Simulated assay, not measured.
Amino acid sequence: MRIRPAGTHALLLDCTAPADIPEAVLVEAWRAELWRRREQGDLSAVEIVPAARTVLLDGLPDPAATADLLFRWTPAVTAAAAARAAATARDGTPAPDGIPAGAGGDTARAGDGGDTARGDETAHGDTARGGDTARGDTITGGGIAADGGGHGGEILVPVEFDGPDLPLVAEHWGVDVPAVLRRLTGTRFLVAFCGFAPGFPYLTGLPADLALPRLPTPRPRVPAGSVALAGPYAGIYPSASPGGWLLVGRTDLPLFDVDGDPPARLGPGTRVRLVAT
């Protein structure tokens, strides 16, 4: 891990991971630990913003002292990330019938939603700063908290799986469309970070070998609520915008309210399941 200054009152953690720890797992381990430390008073930071490979700490009264703390916490965070990666490798998420192991070999690194700008859904931290708070409480009017409140809640997102790109996803994965739906509804997703547009959640949970390329040419307009796939991520468009992700469905669940607290309904650290309607 590298720690770099980002202005006078911010630090950027570059979460370069050991070979046995996926970067997304290490980023999530840091996000969870930093939020925990802030809540118990060990860390003073106005914002903690995860991205694909980094975590930004902004509003630090003493960046040098914070950097010392980060170095002290690194062994424990790395150990926690390694344990989670090992547990995932050991237990995994059971694949629904019809998804063969190793399916989806047609992956495209250019579409993996990494830190490189592409002009559409680029994986930066939430530009609206809506990604600093997890929305784990009970949600009414669409989403449902499946197992209680707090950061541990799981949000059930109702989805009408009628996206125009479902056949293309099935082709890439080497399965039929019903098997794609079983995979998506059987996956327990986690919001890794928000980016591209205010409240746009990048959801991890799909196996790396099911990563998908973006469309060669982005659509000029993707409707609000569209559920989509690109690279290793699933995502949901909070508002209408151009976009190049593969569309698999749509939801009526509002994802961003500038007057809400927090504004982003699906913030980093929130567990999500897609439920067919």
Rank of each mutant, 00 (worst) to 15 (best):
G104F: 10
A87D: 15
T93S: 07
A87F: 05
F71S: 06
A24D: 13
A67V: 07
L56M: 11
D68A: 14
A51M: 09
D42L: 15
G104K: 02
P18W: 11
E33L: 02
L11T: 00
L13H: 10
I48C: 02
L69H: 13
G98S: 05
G92E: 13
D91G: 06
L43Y: 07
R37F: 04
R84T: 15
I21C: 11
E47F: 06
L56Y: 10
P61V: 01
E23P: 01
P50L: 01
A45G: 04
E28K: 00
A101D: 08
T66L: 01
T54E: 14
R36T: 14
T88N: 07
D14T: 09
D62G: 09
A64Y: 04
G92N: 09
D42V: 03
T16G: 14
P61K: 05
E39L: 04
A87G: 11
T78R: 06
A67Q: 15
F71A: 14
L26K: 13
A65W: 00
R84F: 01
L70S: 03
L26Y: 04
L34Q: 07
D62W: 12
P96F: 03
E28I: 02
G41P: 05
A76F: 02
A32P: 01
C15R: 10
D106Y: 03
E47L: 10
A81E: 00
R37E: 13
A65R: 10
D58N: 05
A89T: 07
I99Y: 00
L56W: 14
D97I: 11
A45T: 03
L69K: 09
A29E: 02
P63I: 04
A101Q: 10
T88K: 07
A83Y: 08
D58Q: 07
T16M: 08
V46K: 11
R37S: 13
R90Y: 04
V46A: 12
R38G: 05
A52I: 11
G98T: 07
G105S: 10
Q40W: 07
A32N: 06
D106N: 12
G102N: 06
L12D: 04
V55K: 00
E47T: 09
T54Q: 15
E33T: 09
G98Q: 02
A76Q: 10
A89I: 01
G105D: 13
V77N: 05
R31I: 00
R37D: 08
R72S: 10
G104T: 12
L43R: 05
L70Y: 00
T16F: 06
E47D: 11
T78E: 15
A89W: 04
P18N: 10
W35Q: 11
L13W: 02
A87L: 14
R90A: 15
D58W: 05
A103G: 12
R90Q: 11
A19H: 13
L12Q: 12
A87I: 06
P50D: 07
